[in-house]
Design a protein around this nucleic acid. Sequence first.
DNA 1: TCCATGATTCAATGATCCTTGAAATATTGA
DNA 2: TCAATATTTCAAGGATCATTGAATCATGGA
Lengths: 112, 112
Amino acid sequence: MDDRQALASFAALSQETRLQIVRMLVVAGPGGMSAGALAEKIGVSPSNISFHLKELDHAGLIGQQRESRSIIYTASYDALGGLVRFLMDDCCGGHPDICAPAIPAPACCVTE
Amino acid sequence: MDDRQALASFAALSQETRLQIVRMLVVAGPGGMSAGALAEKIGVSPSNISFHLKELDHAGLIGQQRESRSIIYTASYDALGGLVRFLMDDCCGGHPDICAPAIPAPACCVTE
DNA sequence: TCCATGATTCAATGATCCTTGAAATATTGA
DNA sequence: TCAATATTTCAAGGATCATTGAATCATGGA
């Protein structure tokens, strides 16, 4: 992930509604959720959810796919993982000895 | 880290100058850097660097400490580590099996 | 074809953010 | 105290972002 994409990702995640969307899509998994379902769950208007979905899509954090009348959105695990790595590189790249204790055994790293 | 702080952190990191500042401070380590040194290295005016430093400070991503005439800024490794964990929880919390491969052995996790 | 559903687009408004330069504050040394 | 250094604060501007409701587009069923 380059700086450009990281900046866009940070901007996308800095808005409450969009953070909620990403969270819901991550929990929803590969099946994703429709724009309407997201709007109802979060409690915003269709046009508003559409606006924020476009922002997230433009940042590359989500994907979409039409399914009959609905459009199904899914989280981009690659992009989210890439952003985690980007942050880690910035933090650990400089001073691993200092940063390591700040990140105590995250769930992803103890899979084995 | 709660949502409020995460949103503020994302907003703070979504601006190029501020991302540069954080990077430099991380690399600088505990010794930190003065506002003037940051302004010169990045190539912005004193008032501009001051504006962005205040934003980062407000988000809790950096700390400061006066040293004679200069004010020395340092990166908050706790806050940065907390943000990494926050992102990981959002990603891994939902579907560890899906997210784990997206985050291949980050540097911090292979210290031993 | 006609209608209903699901979603996006558009224009307008208000809010927030970024930049700039001038003025103000704090610290140190002569 | 006076001047120089380092930084912040302030006000004004332009730019970007978020919200709203109406209009538009796409799809599927009667």
